[in-house]
Nucleic acid binder design. Structure first.
Length: 145
DNA sequence: GTTCTAACA
DNA sequence: TGTTAGGA
């Protein structure tokens, strides 16, 4: 039996105001406004400049990464630069995994990640396993269930 | 109660 | 970067 995981969660609906984002990340609201002024981060477009800022989940991730890097000793501009390069790595990883990942299968009562065809002839499938904190791989013939 | 901008004992 | 003023 094969399970696929559709997009069940809409992360665009995860929005926060400045006080919430500040508490979530440990970055002061003063800092968040300053970072925005420097174009290091951005709030969701505000129609009225005097209206409260709204941040999305993506910005939460960005702020979290910058904060972590600062705690590790990076200065703000360097932290932002590294955050942006990290985001490129994350984006690439996501695309690769999205392309490779083809759902979860139960084989002999065990959960397997279907990682796509192993060979060009499409006779074998690469499976990933995760057990006791370790990953492993198995190549199996195509599952005909 | 929260967030806004601007300014600085 | 913190804090405060005065409004929304």
């Amino acid at each position: 039996m094969k399970y696929r995981i559709p997009n069940l969660v809409n992360f665009d609906k995860f929005v926060f105001r400045i006080g919430e984002l500040s508490r979530m990340t440990g970055v002061s609201s003063r800092q968040l406004r300053y970072w925005e002024q420097r174009d290091y981060i951005s709030a969701i477009t505000r129609d009225d400049q005097n209206k409260a800022r709204v941040y999305d989940f993506h910005t939460f991730i960005q702020v979290s990464i910058i904060k972590r890097l600062q705690d590790e000793g990076y200065r703000l501009p360097a932290a932002v630069e590294k955050m942006r390069s990290i985001q490129k790595e994350i984006a690439l990883s996501r695309e690769f995994f999205k392309a490779a990942f083809d759902g979860v299968e139960v084989i002999d009562g065990q959960l397997y990640l279907n990682l796509g065809y192993f060979d060009k002839a499409k006779t074998k499938v690469l499976y990933g396993r995760y057990e006791n904190g370790e990953t492993s791989y198995e190549v199996r013939p195509v599952n005909k269930d």
